[in-house]
Structure formats: C-alpha cells, structure tokens
C-alpha cells in the first residue's frame, strides 16, 4: 500500500515538474511565436511574417549588441570559472587557517543583489577611479556573482571527488599542474562546463550590472531596455527566438548523447 501511495507521490511530483517547465517556457514560446507575427503589439489572431528576421540581419545595431553580449558573457564566464575552480580546490584540498575567510569571501556576492553590485561598482569606478564605462569593468563586475555561482556548483561536485587519485599521481612524480590536467580535469569537466555555462548565461543577459558599467556600449539587454520607450523592436524577438533555437538544438543533441550513453556528463550508473 505504501509503495502504491509513493508511486502516486512520484507521479504528482513529475506532473508538477512538467507544469513548472510549461510555465517557464510559455513566455519563451510566446517570444518565438511573436517573432513570426506580422504585428507584435496585436499578435492574435495569428498573421505570420518573416519581416523581423530580415530587419535583424540588415541592422548593424543588433549585430554589435550581440557581439558585445557574447564578449561580455564569455569573458565573465571564463574569469569566474577559473577563479572559482581554484577557490573550490583550495578550500577542499588544503588546510589553512584562512579557509573560513576564503569560503566566506567566495560566497559574499550571493548576499549582494545585482542592482547593488551595479550601482556600487558604478560609484566606485566613476568617483574613486575616475573610470568611464568600459567592457573590462563590466566583465569584472559580472564575474562577481558568476564566481559565487561557479564556486557553489564546483564545490557541490568536488565534495564527492576522491583526492587519493591525485595523491597517487603526485607519488609517481606528477606536478600539481600536470596532475590537475591529467587526473582532476577529466573527472570534473562536466561541472566546470556547468559553472561556465551558468556564468555565461548570467552575464550574457545581465541588465542591472552591465547597464551601470558599460556606459554607451550596447548589449542585447541594454538595447532591449533602450527600445522599450518606443515598444520592443520585433528584431529583438527574432534574435531571442534564434538564440532559443540554438539552445534547443544543443539540448536535443545532449538528449541523444545521454539516451545512447555516448557521453555520461558525470552520471554514474551505480549512484
């Protein structure tokens, strides 16, 4: 009887998960749908047009914005993943009386809202360093919360990591760097990739931090913000739709890889 009731509970959780996915993706589908609509203000009843996609490729503003967003996202994700990997390994592997302090520092950004990071870095850059808005300070500022997220993700995975393998490699004379590349990295790469991906997404689409640090450099969110005054341009919907097509394609490939067990992404059958 208990097993049957548990079965119901599992089914209910599954249905809830499906509902949450539906809720999360409804606006995404709406964006995709609207990108094909002839009139984005009155998208119903449907009237389709590809005009938005044509305009997207002829306009230079969106190309620049996309490029800047990509640079910002990749730079920030790289910086935060590198810093967080070092931090997580250091905190887990080496005893030090500074361990608690380091742990606290790496987690501090979680306690500071994006808006606050944005305005404080703006105030610091503008009034203390006398620095105008630029891409480097935007990358650094976006990497602040990115580092925390990456640190958490990597830490959660590394807790299970067996350091005896590294010790074994060291006994056989491998240096710390070689040991990391040949032993640690092949095991933990999925979580580094996850941390990088999260850092990228957050920085790519960040408005509140980037807005205050970039000055006049356009990124996708700032272009969206700027165009709100006249109503969002249909090109933005088209661009978002294309980004989502790519994401869905990647997920499709991941599903196939998992389905046919070509890549395990860190999953072990015995767990």
């Amino acid at each position: 009887m208990t097993a049957k009731r548990l079965g119901w509970a599992v089914a209910a959780m599954g249905v809830l998960l499906a509902c949450i996915y539906l809720f999360l993706y409804a606006p995404i589908f709406y964006v995709i749908y609207t990108s094909f609509a002839a009139d984005i203000v009155w998208p119903f009843p449907p009237a389709f047009s590809m005009a938005a996609y044509g305009d997207l490729f002829t306009s230079s503003l969106y190309g620049d914005a996309l490029r800047n967003s990509l640079v910002l996202g990749l730079g920030s994700a790289l910086l935060s993943t590198v810093l967080a990997t070092g931090g997580a390994i250091g905190v887990l592997r080496h005893r030090s009386r500074w361990r608690g302090l380091a742990l606290g520092l790496f987690l501090t950004p979680l306690f500071v809202a994006d808006l606050l990071i944005g305005i404080s870095t703006l105030a610091f850059n503008a009034r203390v360093l006398d620095l105008p808005g630029n891409m480097y300070s935007a990358i650094a500022a976006n990497a602040i919360p990115g580092t925390s997220f990456a640190f958490l993700i990597i830490l959660a995975q590394l807790v299970r990591y067996d350091w005896a393998m590294d010790d074994a490699a060291m006994v056989f004379g491998a240096g710390p760097v070689r040991c990391f590349i040949e032993i640690t990295l092949p095991t933990i790469w999925p979580c580094l990739l996850g941390a990088f991906l999260i850092g990228f997404i957050l920085a790519f689409n960040n408005l509140e931090i980037s807005f205050y640090n970039l000055g006049a450099i356009p990124t996708l969110p700032s272009v969206a913000w700027g165009s709100l005054r006249f109503g969002l341009g249909p090109e933005l919907f088209a661009l978002a739709a294309m980004v989502n097509f790519i994401v869905f394609a990647i997920f499709g490939v991941m599903y196939l890889l998992m389905r046919y067990k070509i890549v395990r992404f860190g999953y072990r059958e015995t767990l």
Binding site: L17, I20, Y21, L24, Y25, A26, P27, I28, Y30, V31, T34, P43, P190, G194, L197, I198, I201, L202, F204, N205, L207, L220, P221, A224, W225, L228, L232, L236, F237, A240, V243, N244, V247, F251, M254, Y255, M258, K261, R264, F265, G266, Y267, E269
Partner: peptide, 29 residues
C-alpha cells in the same frame, strides 16, 4: 536517472532569453 543534468539545465535555459523580453512576454500572456 541519467537525464538529471539535462533536466536541471532545462530549468536554467530560460535565462538565455533576456529578463526584459521574458517579462514583456509574461505581460503579453
């Protein structure tokens, strides 16, 4: 099961679309 990572990433994927766009879409819905 083995789809755990994919299922978690599916939760994060809406973030690929900007906050403004998603909020506008919610408004539209």
């Amino acid at each position: 099961g083995r789809y755990r990572l994919l299922l978690v990433l599916l939760l994060a994927a809406p973030f690929f679309t900007g906050v403004i766009l998603r909020i506008t879409a919610l408004q539209g819905l």
